[in-house]
Amino acid sequence: MSDLINPRLFARVERSLRKRLNVNVTPHLKRCAAHAKSEDDFMAAAARMLINQQERQEWLASWATRRHNESADTTPADLDTTTPSSLDAPLQRTFRITPQQRERVREALANELGPIADLLLDNEARRADSVTELLQRLESHLESDEQRARFRQSTLSSRSLDA
């Protein structure tokens, strides 16, 4: 973990995201911390784990408010941890992806992000309406244009699967 990231902040971010996502986020957060140039970079990278854009913005805003008001205390502001109503609807999708294609996408994503790829693929597959949307959603978790280009190249033939 980078010396730039306060261990107390790391621990609180880890607890907050683990509670929201109900998975072990520590490996992904360690990677975010290792690449972060500042605590703000770390927070932005950590926030990308939240799929819903509105939830991500609210989560970041709660941390920014608390950090601004109490610079010595990195405790997040109280948040409503219930699932947003937009996510309550059943997540049944109509597009099809074969197990071989899914594995190819998972491997391409794992090459860029590591073990968190399985979680992201499962979450995004439930929310996507097409293979193209799925790949776009997965690309949004990649930090650099270079990573997105490698991922796109690795999954290029998958794009023709859209129905």
Rank of each mutant, 00 (worst) to 15 (best):
R106S: 12
T83F: 00
L109Q: 02
D88S: 09
R104D: 05
D78A: 13
R93D: 03
L91V: 03
T83G: 02
D88A: 10
L91K: 15
T83H: 01
N111Y: 01
P84L: 07
R96Y: 13
T98C: 02
A110V: 04
S85L: 13
T98S: 15
I97K: 02
S86N: 15
E107K: 02
D88N: 13
S85E: 14
S86D: 12
R96F: 12
R106F: 03
F95A: 07
S85F: 12
N111G: 15
Q100Y: 04
E107P: 05
T82V: 06
R93M: 04
A110L: 00
E112K: 09
A108E: 00
P76G: 00
L109Y: 00
S86M: 07
L79K: 03
L91C: 08
L91W: 06
D80H: 01
T75H: 00
T82D: 14
E112R: 10
Q100W: 03
P76R: 10
R102E: 15
T83N: 03
E112S: 10
L91D: 11
L91P: 11
L113Q: 03
Q100F: 06
Q92F: 06
L113V: 13
S86K: 10
E112V: 08
D78I: 07
S86A: 09
A89I: 08
R106H: 15
D80R: 00
P99M: 05
L79W: 01
T94K: 14
E103N: 11
L87D: 15
L109A: 10
T94A: 10
T82A: 14
T98I: 08
S86I: 10
T83D: 03
R96Q: 15
L91Q: 15
T81N: 03
Q100G: 06
E103F: 08
I97G: 08
L87K: 10
Q100S: 11
T83W: 01
D78W: 11
L109M: 12
P84Y: 05
I97Y: 01
T82W: 08
S85P: 08
Q92K: 10
Q101C: 05
S85D: 14
L87F: 04
A108M: 01
E112P: 08
D88Q: 14
V105N: 04
V105G: 06
R93F: 02
E103Y: 09
P90Y: 06
V105F: 02
T75C: 02
Q101Y: 04
L87V: 05
L87Y: 04
L91M: 11
A108D: 00
Q92C: 09
T98D: 02
R102Y: 08
I97E: 02
R102Q: 14
S86W: 07
L87E: 15
L109D: 01
E112F: 07
L79I: 07
L91N: 09
R96N: 10
D88G: 08
E107F: 02
T82E: 14
Q92I: 09
A110S: 11
P84N: 06
E103A: 13
A77M: 06
A89K: 15
L109T: 01
Q92G: 05
Q100P: 00
L87S: 13
P76W: 10
F95L: 04
L113F: 03
R93Y: 01
P99Q: 11
N111H: 04
A89Y: 13
S86G: 05
R104S: 12
L109H: 02
